[in-house]
Simulated scan of single mutants.
Amino acid sequence: MAVGSVEREGDRVQCHLCERWFKSVTAHLSSHGWDHIAYREAFGLERGASLEGDATRKRRAALMRKRRVLDPAIREGVDRGIDMARSGLLAKAAAEAARGRPQPEQRRRKTLRTLAEIGPEARAEGRRRQGTEQLKRTAAEAAARLGYGSIGALVRDRVEAGASLAAISREAGLHKDWLTRKLAIVDGEAADFATRADRRWDTPWLPVLAELGFSDVADYLTDRHIVRHETVWAIAAETGFSRKTVESALARHGLARRPHVRKRNALRQRADAIADRFGFADIAAYLAHRRAAGWSWQAIAAEADQPQTWIRRRAREAGL
């Protein structure tokens, strides 16, 4: 007989131990010196799996219904069980009792059959719902760490004080972009409030940016800091705002501040010019080719007309 299943034939059930057929294997197990709990565990059966034939099981159920009517103790016990089932306490108790216990083979097979019947769209929806619940738990825990009853209350309080979502995320022990990306999922009203507040903080910028040909703060900051590699100090000087105001605007619009941006851009242009001069895609390809050809660092530096320390530093950055 297969482990994890009960073989039935009419009103009889087959015993896994002796392969004989009985109306009730439960009553038969004592002849083997077994009880029904050990039997179910040994053969991968669920604890509630019936070990009786259908007719026998129906007769027992009918008898129990009569006893429920006539016996107050049984009636009280059944009613208590029904109340526990409706309240969810029975399911919780069952889950607690099953914790740490291997899943029976019979239950595993049922689970696999059930999962196989679930369509891909339903699975995707289930994963989305589970992910949303996890995000809400994470948000609630983050708010509780700072003494707030909800993530919405935390965001409103901090935003009104002038904090960005990135700053709030870091304060709450989350990734700096967590609230920017997830707040609309866990609390749409708080996300709308933060968006309106962001626009309010952008208001002083608009007249200044209009003179520079921009209508949006994010577009201006992207152009100056990301595209043109202007420093925070240069942006502050151009707009007349303080360095802190510029840094807050960058954070508010999800733009990472780039320290030494001009120097880094100049360095990149310098490396690209050397690679282009000798027909390579980038400085890493140039250095790798020369080293593979047996060139020394001194020879490469002489050819590139750069200090040897500069060449070695680029090589380390490229992992050579």
Rank of each mutant, 00 (worst) to 15 (best):
E117Q: 13
E117P: 00
E117A: 14
G119N: 15
G119D: 12
G119M: 05
G119E: 10
E121V: 13
E121H: 12
E121W: 14
A122V: 10
A122I: 12
A122P: 07
A122G: 07
R123A: 07
R123P: 05
A124G: 07
A124K: 02
E125N: 15
R127Y: 13
R127V: 12
R128W: 08
R128G: 08
Q130S: 13
G131V: 04
G131F: 01
G131P: 08
T132Y: 04
E133S: 10
E133A: 14
Q134H: 03
L135W: 11
K136Q: 10
K136T: 15
K136G: 07
K136L: 02
K136W: 04
K136F: 04
K136Y: 09
R137P: 07
A140R: 04
E141T: 11
A142E: 04
A143D: 09
A143E: 02
A144C: 03
R145Y: 10
G147T: 03
Y148V: 11
Y148T: 05
Y148H: 10
Y148C: 13
G149Q: 02
S150N: 00
S150K: 04
I151E: 00
I151Y: 01
I151R: 00
A153F: 06
L154C: 00
L154T: 05
V155A: 08
V155Q: 02
R156G: 01
D157F: 00
R158Y: 06
V159P: 00
E160K: 14
A161E: 12
A161T: 04
A161C: 08
G162A: 02
G162W: 07
A163Y: 05
A163K: 13
S164L: 03
S164M: 03
S164F: 01
L165C: 09
L165I: 13
L165D: 03
A166K: 05
A167T: 14
I168V: 04
I168E: 00
I168Y: 03
S169F: 08
A172M: 06
A172D: 08
G173K: 09
G173T: 12
G173R: 01
G173H: 02
L174C: 06
H175E: 11
H175R: 14
K176I: 02
K176D: 15
D177Q: 14
L179D: 05
L179K: 01
L179E: 08
L179S: 05
L179W: 00
T180E: 03
R181C: 10
R181L: 15
R181T: 09
